[in-house]
Design a protein around this nucleic acid. Structure first.
Length: 232
DNA sequence: AGCACA
């Protein structure tokens, strides 16, 4: 299985992260990078000896997590390919949303282990009951229901595809918006097709950041920019 | 490699 033996979870567990990047920067970058897949409730990263190089990203939808696990698998992030799985247990922020959160008291190693096992079983149960793990088998992609007209996110690309621009948009206008993000290279308006543009960045991480920041930006009130990764 | 909630 693509995601290992772990049943689907709203939270993804990421490892092989670059341990040199500072915790806050890491969290912000992960937030930017993964918010293309859905609403993020929390990002957790600790720099303790046991937990550095790892992080958890909690989504409001399992489908978002599933897409993220597949699409961002091995994505080069701060020069290291991310290894992504579902988290083994339910995140506190998720439990809080469900109202099932009980603050854990300090436990000994032994009890922790039993606790984890129990929670994994719970997750398995609910996963089967909801049929939410259909997208995790690496087979043909099912349709995702994350809103009307939602389509599967394109694979990360250093080139962004911009739609819904007012026809009066100039290259200079777009430059002013995009050049404030690191790695910006150039804007390309398509003469033959007004309303769309391509914007090139040095790499996929940088394009992701700009996408996250500017998606939905309104050049006019009627024209929220639609930004996706360009098709390869 | 390492599954937490500072």
């Amino acid at each position: 299985m693509l995601s290992g033996d772990i049943p689907p979870n709203q939270t993804i567990y990421i490892k092989n992260l670059n341990e040199k990047v500072k915790k806050d920067e890491l969290k912000r970058s992960l937030y930017c990078l993964f918010s293309q897949y859905g609403r993020i409730l929390d990002v957790i990263a600790l720099k303790t000896p046991k937990l550095r190089g790892q992080a958890w990203v909690c989504f409001s939808e399992v489908t978002a997590a599933s897409n993220a696990v597949r699409q961002m698998q091995n994505f080069p992030f701060y020069d290291k390919p991310m290894r992504i799985h579902y988290a083994k247990t339910k995140s506190d922020c998720i439990a809080k949303e469900e109202g099932s959160f009980v603050p854990r008291e300090k436990k000994k190693k032994q009890e922790e282990k039993a606790e984890r096992k129990r929670r994994v079983e719970e997750a398995q149960q609910s996963g089967v009951a909801n049929g939410t793990h259909s997208a995790s088998n690496g087979g043909p992609t099912a349709s995702f229901r994350q809103g009307p007209g939602a389509q599967e996110a394109a694979a990360p690309n250093n080139i962004l595809f911009i739609e819904n621009l007012p026809h009066e948009t100039t290259g200079r206008m777009l430059e002013m918006l995009f050049e404030q993000y690191p790695g910006f290279k150039e804007v390309r308006l398509i003469e033959a097709k007004p309303g769309i543009a391509f914007v090139d960045f040095e790499d996929e991480v940088q394009s992701s950041m700009a996408m996250q920041a500017l998606h939905g930006f309104k050049i006019t009130p009627q024209n929220p920019m639609i930004i996706t990764f360009a098709k390869k």
